[in-house]
Design a protein around this nucleic acid. Sequence first.
RNA 1: GGGCGCUUAGCUCAGCGGGAGAGCGUCCGCCUUACACGCGGAAGGCCAGAGGUUCGAAUCCUCUAGCGCCCACCA
Length: 896
Amino acid sequence: MELPKAYDPKEAEERWYAFWESHHYFDGNVNAQKKPFAIVIPPPNVTGELHIGHALNNTLQDIVTRYKRMDGFEACWFPGTDHASIAVHVLIEKGLAKRQLDDLLHEIGYPVPADKRPLTRFDLGREYFVKLGWAWKNRYGSKIREQLRALGCSCDWRRESFTLDEPRSRAVTEVFVRLYEEGFIYRGDRLINWCPRCQTVLSDLEVEREESEGQLYYIRYPLAQGEGFVTVATTRPETMLGDTGIAVHPKDGRYQELIGKFVILPLLEREIPIIADEAVDKDFGTGAVKVTPGHDQTDFEIGRRHGLKIINIFNTDATTNENAGPYKNLDRFEARRRVVEALKAQGLLERVEKHTHAVGHCQRCQTVIEPLISTQWFVRMKELAEPAIKVIESGEIQFIPERWTKVYFDWMRNIRDWPISRQLWWGHRIPAWHCLDCKAITVARQAPSVCSTCHSQNIKQDEDVLDTWFSSALWPFSVMGWPAETPELKYFYPTQLLSTGHDIIFFWVARMIMMGLHFMKKIPFERVFFHPIVKDEHGQKMSKSKGNVMDPLQMKEKYGMDALRLTLAALCAQGKEMRLSVQDIEGYKKFLNKLWNAARFVLMTSPSEGRGGIGEGGPLEDRWIRSRLTRAILQTRASLDRYEFNQAAKGLYDFVWHDFCDWYLEMAKTRLYGSDPAAKAQAQSVLLSVLADIVKLLHPFIPFITEEIWQRLPHKTAESVMIAEYPKAHPEWIDEQAEQTMQKLQALITAIRTIRSEMNVPPQKRAKVLIKAEDPSVQQVVHEYKVFFEELAQASEVIVGPSVERPKSAPRMVLEWAEVFVPLEGLLDLQQEHRRLRQELKEAQAGLEATLRKLDNPNFLARAPEEVIEKEKHKAQEFREKVERLEQNLQLLQGS
RNA sequence: GGGCGCUUAGCUCAGCGGGAGAGCGUCCGCCUUACACGCGGAAGGCCAGAGGUUCGAAUCCUCUAGCGCCCACCA
């Protein structure tokens, strides 16, 4: 059977994916006969499009899944998507504002206004807004699924989940109710991060701090009694309107007498106390700080310690409220200007300094966060975190690379309560009902008809939805049907691997571990692999605004998905980032072409009924390739087991290209084109066998092209390479002797090629070769494999022996154990030859000296392991011989 | 303010206790009947700097410098 001259990825990829799926190869079933291997996908956002980071992470998961499936495990990869509460909510709001969603609005039956004025969610109301969310999801949510399929992901699509679908919502409700009943969930007033644009609370993790240049204002607060004032420094002068105290450090000598006294708050003329608190830094600013418990985390705590009043001066849109007195109804930044102006006018603004500080921004819309007091739902985390810390400490869950455990521990050991309510509409609505009569709260799995406390029917469901990460935290068991006790849960939980980016170690990984341990009483996964972050070739983060994003589907279009997958795997070292450029992909595309052509060659020269069979013994090249193949299998498996994808991919790359193609194929040609039918058959059979193993070894990395080749193999052992057995190493095939002999052969042939190349001998032109070697085994190599000297080095004749006469003026290569001469007609550039030999002599001498220095060192002899000493001795001998040979050759050259 | 990571050939990076590696790029030859997405050959490096541990360090430890990331309630 022959292969077409070129491989066409576009056509083949689609065809084989459909083939696999229709044959149910992706399905993972409860199967007591096999060990399970499960991966739960980090669910991409429905809003999203597959970016290069997805391509990387899902390629890695697919590689592992395919490897394990071929290796005899019942592999199951659970796919799904995330409803991405706030992200989608914000996107829809923006779409409404820009009136880009009119067609969806029509679709859901919303009376779309004829004019083009911006719409808000309040125009729609909650019901239409949620409908719109689903319409959006139905239109765009399938896109990412199609993209994962284009990647080649072997997910069990029957098991696809969505974090907001009915079964997952049931899990969310169940968890909420249980945590509430167990006392982990509570409702309370806290100072929280408020996004004035999104109009919702955010967790600390959703606030991104950005260094920016601001100003530090020094403001004078006159003393209530007597002369003078206290000067405080602040970056937010407008919040003074909410000040209820001034704080100094208890040990600050400058302010001792003022502690317990009062100042007059400028502008509002309120009398507020001076208190002492450890939280104050004596060395910052003036050492005195204004205290605004309503709008600053530190101040909130200081205020609580000292019983200070809390005054909230902002509305939820960050405009000032009536507490701001004459400054009410102003945007916070406008309020700042006015306050500063007024202070200046009253001579209370001492000075203004430049000051860089970190300002919190909303992760989704970049708006500056406003700390506000608000009533929210929280999860008490400390107790949940403790067991989750233990399972990492004990190694029950392993992080790879291990260093991420430190990051995890630091966060977990200082964990704070998790605000889980969000004032949004797209998400899981909190299963709590407020009684409008008695104010009691009923938390229940289903909507109650009456208040559980006073039995009033006047109840209303809580307006808030849950943080999107709440449902993600349950993902490893919710995708398996929890809270029902399904066979899948029993069989596939805990999963074996979680592959993700380190950027969501707190958001997601930590919370899954806590929830898994709490509700399943078992870890959710055995290992977590943190893949590197993909950057562009300059180390810049890929982002749309920078215009340096790489679209995986565009790469597929251009190079084929296998090329992208192989590139991602080959570059995936266990560092923090990976730099990727199209040149890399082009390079690995070439490897695919190489593989294709090697397969084409093998199939072209094999009979269509070829059986394969790697056999035993046989000529050197057969024993050698078997040995090399064995090493490749061992290395690939070991690397994959350690998630060293780069090592696995590069090992195979080298084996295929440099062992199989460069040497074995070339050497096999002698037999393939020769006249001995038995030898020919033997070569064909080994070629087919090695090719089959190569295809299997590579399949997890490059599934499409390997299937395309597999299907043409006359001796394929399975109807798809996907379900063929992953090659197992036969350690007895390691043949040190064959490898050593081969190394000598390669060195001699390379030496001849080097001479010929440097002398500009035309490739077709055959030339005589002289080899001087005393070692009988070297002589034997030359005698026995003369044919390869002819075929691979264009030798017309090879003469070898201990007393081969050195030609006076022939170009030469000096090896440790042989000298190679190619006598040529015409003139040899003696000076150049001289220079080259001198250079080599210098290097050999340096090597010899370094080795002897070790061997002369009694400490070395006393302490180094036996084998190392042996090796050094051997090295010394080789260097010595080489030096000797070089010296002789130089002498001869001088004489001529 | 804490913590983490990186610094190896022109570029991008592997290697992480025993003779400096790859890909790309560069240079020189070749359309040799699998492949010019190719074949053969070559040049190119005090492995950031300084100490230390060791018989032996690019590799382990300490410090320094530069770059990058993460966390944190100095207003």
